[in-house]
């Protein structure tokens, strides 16, 4: 994926900043809108270089549709995670079997890897410990039997299926 032109990256940064301004002020007054636009233009001039590398290509309708579909999916995973935590904390025997497992991902972009790491941290029983190229090291609170094999490949396959694969089908489209 090559870098987009400077103009497109700048415009994308302005749009995102202006949307944040709209949500924070929550007012459609002309003076507020004008000042917000002015501030977005100034701040974007300083920050667009580190903010994005794809520019307006991020506003592709397919990506936005997947992003909107991802929100309820992710929130549901988070609620499940918390019910799981509730079960482990309140259960008198405290059923935990922790361990650090290794997963592989198919995502290429840095932002995608960040989003995947965040999603992993907030969903059932897993927390990201380190990311090295395409390998994720994840602390899992209940390591299932399939992941306890001696063979390295089977371990990676089993743990990836349990942790990363459910999110990748969305994040692959959103971030590439």
């Amino acid at each position: 994926m090559g870098e987009a032109s400077k103009i497109s990256r700048y415009l994308y940064t302005v749009i995102v900043l202006f949307l944040i301004w709209l949500a924070i002020t929550a007012s459609l007054d002309v003076q507020e809108l004008g000042f917000g636009l002015l501030l977005s233009l100034i701040v974007a001039a300083f920050t667009y270089e580190i903010f994005t590398t794809n520019g307006l290509a991020n506003l592709n309708p397919k990506r936005i549709a997947y992003m909107i579909a991802y929100i309820p999916y992710f929130l549901w995973a988070m609620i499940k995670a918390n019910l799981d935590v509730a079960y482990r904390v309140l259960h008198p025997k405290r059923p935990i079997r922790p361990g650090i497992v290794k997963c592989k991902t198919v995502l290429n972009s840095d932002v995608g890897k960040l989003a995947l790491a965040n999603s992993i941290t907030l969903t059932p029983g897993t927390i990201t410990l380190d990311v090295d190229e395409d390998e994720y090291f994840i602390h899992w609170i209940w390591v299932p039997d399939e992941a306890l094999t001696e063979s390295e490949e089977e371990h990676v396959k089993a743990s990836s299926e349990g942790i990363t694969v459910p999110f990748e089908k969305f994040l692959k489209v959103i971030f590439g």
Binding site: M78, I79, A81, N82, R88, V89, R94, L122, I127, I141
Partner: peptide, 18 residues
Amino acid sequence: RMPDVYNRMQTSTKSATL
């Protein structure tokens, strides 16, 4: 209730965020 740092982070992060 959790025994070590890692499991404590595990429970506290998720529940506090939601």
